[in-house]
């Protein structure tokens, strides 16, 4: 299959290893990966902060880059959620019927990475080996906006050597919320504090998820506290085999 990667601005700039892992896994499974270099950002930060008019050009830009793709895959649950949930609204806001139709046709082809593996490619075992104690944080957007279900867990359960432990209070938000973490820093800190406590109580060395944005928030605090727990995106775990990381 010809798969176009929507890396997201966040992963492109700060977490290139996640993108490399996605490419490596998809190629290992026999697919061809394309990366349209004109892609930039989905506009989620703007949208969630209330700046809706500013990002109309980004909706059109996304359509330009990806509408010819066979499938679009992204390692960010929240950015995919943004596209699925709010791009139709933004397209309607633009007043262009053409753009609305283009977005409507494109959206069913846009997939979150772990859901794409499990639901579209029907793969649950990617041949990974990861001999570590790991706990999984289900991000709110993957859970409630995308309805990710247990796709990430199915993939993780098939990883050899992994010691996968349940995270208590797993359904509760970590307190990131994009600009919420700055605008309501005190509340965000209180939510993060409880999430960190739960993660530490599992005794895991690694906290993983299908989104680097929550992991940046959680990992930033784990690092500050010298907790000895690190955060790793799902794709990087799935890309580690008995021969090491496959990039």
């Amino acid at each position: 299959m010809n798969i176009s990667l929507f890396i997201t601005c966040f992963n492109d700039t700060l977490y290139p290893e996640t993108g490399k892992a996605v490419v490596s896994i998809l190629e290992r499974l026999g697919h061809t990966v394309h990366f349209p270099l004109e892609q930039t950002c989905c506009g989620q930060m703007h949208y969630n902060t209330g700046y809706h008019e500013e990002i109309n050009p980004l909706v059109e830009r996304f359509a330009d880059q990806f509408e010819s793709a066979e499938a679009v895959v992204s390692p960010s649950a929240s950015c995919v959620g943004m596209i699925h949930e709010f791009y139709p609204k933004l397209a309607a806001l633009s007043g262009s019927k053409v753009l609305q139709d283009r977005i409507d046709a494109l959206i069913p082809k846009v997939h979150e990475f772990t859901m794409f593996l499990v639901n579209e490619l029907k793969v649950e075992d990617v041949g990974a080996y990861y001999p570590h104690r790991v706990t999984y944080h289900s991000t709110c957007h993957s859970l409630r906006s995308l309805k990710i279900g247990d796709a990430p867990l199915r993939l993780l359960r098939n990883v050899k050597g992994i010691d996968l432990v349940d995270l208590p209070g797993a359904l509760e938000c970590c307190g990131f919320g994009g600009t919420f973490a700055l605008k309501n820093a005190d509340t965000s800190a209180a939510m993060l504090g409880d999430k960190i406590r739960h993660i530490k109580n599992t005794g895991a060395e690694v906290c993983t998820s299908a989104d680097n944005s929550c992991l940046m928030h959680i990992g930033g605090a784990l690092n500050r506290q010298r907790s000895g727990v690190k955060t790793v995106h799902m794709a990087e775990i799935l890309n580690t085999t008995e021969e090491g990381a496959q990039v």
Binding site: C140, H141, R144, F176, N184, S188
Partner: peptide, 8 residues
């Protein structure tokens, strides 16, 4: 703005 948009 008093919400992390978790959707619960």
């Amino acid at each position: 703005y008093a919400s992390s948009l978790c959707g619960a």
